[in-house]
Amino acid sequence: MRLVFAGTPEFAASALRALLDAGHEISLVLTQPDRPAGRGMSLQPSPVKRQALAAGIEVFQPNSLRDLEAQNRIRDVVPEVMVVAAYGLILPQAVLDIPRLGCLNIHASLLPRWRGAAPIQRAILAGDAETGVCIMQMEAGLDTGPVLRSHAIPIAGDDTAGTVHDKLAELGARLVVGTLAELPITARPQPESGVTYAAKIEKAEARLDWRLPAAEVERRVRAFNPFPGALASFDGHSVKVWRAECVPTEGEPGRILAADKHGIVVGCGQNALRLLELQKAGGRRLSADQLLAGTPLSVGTSFDLAA
């Protein structure tokens, strides 16, 4: 099919690669403008842009799709379908109406649960047992369109946002290729019950509060790995926690109950958390054993209650 593809991060790049491998004609790729990144803060292309340029596809990076010039750029390639994955710009109705078979969105949740920007992290934070991918026919509302195909996967007890992202990126790529092969498909409207919204993750949310139950603190560690990293504070110094596990021990919230080669056990509002992998500011990730060799974290001392 003749497609326009719109996406920005690696999640979308996986779908773009799959569509190319399946033999679709991608006439135009839309992605966010280059952003400053890295230590030098130089402008960096998105993963989708890099993938498109490597495949010799024309790339279009508008700041908005609301002006007529941008819309005509899409209209000129006469797409049958526009495939959208984590693009980052709102598609106005004028754009939704351009492709003959509409615009399909690859969404990383089981709609209507977790509509919005951060469905993977929100599912882990909420303790959901499963997540998945929906291929949705786009309409003007936020992820409100009818669903053409969906597939669920379990969220494992050790899954992080990073591992779930990679599973869903692969699943979404396969699912959109299969959906395009079956078009036209009768889509099913989303149910009115069970709607939740996945608000964008703010860095302030990653600050660990030891007064919460250990199970909730542990989910925050997994949900904010790899970004922005769960943040603890000891004597005013920041430490990121990358891996932890709950233990059936009770102690004062924030108090270090054990510190040895097995990890650093910290009291929580209910039960305790064993910290297994940490990172001091400006340093590299270390096992708890390695960190203890150079950091005075001893039994009886305390992490700050909230980072």
Rank of each mutant, 00 (worst) to 15 (best):
W210E: 06
D235R: 12
S298Q: 15
L292W: 14
G194Y: 02
P226G: 08
I74A: 14
A161P: 11
Q290M: 14
R149V: 07
E277F: 02
D289W: 09
T186G: 10
Q71W: 04
L96E: 03
A140S: 13
Q93P: 01
G116H: 09
L28D: 08
K240L: 02
R122V: 13
S193D: 15
N105Y: 03
K240V: 00
P62V: 13
V81I: 14
A12M: 08
V29F: 09
L3D: 08
I120W: 05
Y197H: 11
G38K: 14
E205H: 14
R188C: 13
H237A: 07
V195D: 11
S42K: 10
V77I: 12
D159Y: 03
G254L: 00
Q190K: 09
F11M: 15
G88F: 00
T249W: 04
P213N: 01
G294M: 14
R50K: 15
T8Q: 05
P62Q: 07
K167P: 01
P45A: 11
T295I: 09
S27E: 10
V84K: 09
L19P: 04
S150M: 07
A161V: 10
R243F: 01
R66G: 11
I155N: 10
L89K: 15
Q44W: 02
S193F: 07
P45I: 05
D34Y: 00
P213R: 01
L171R: 15
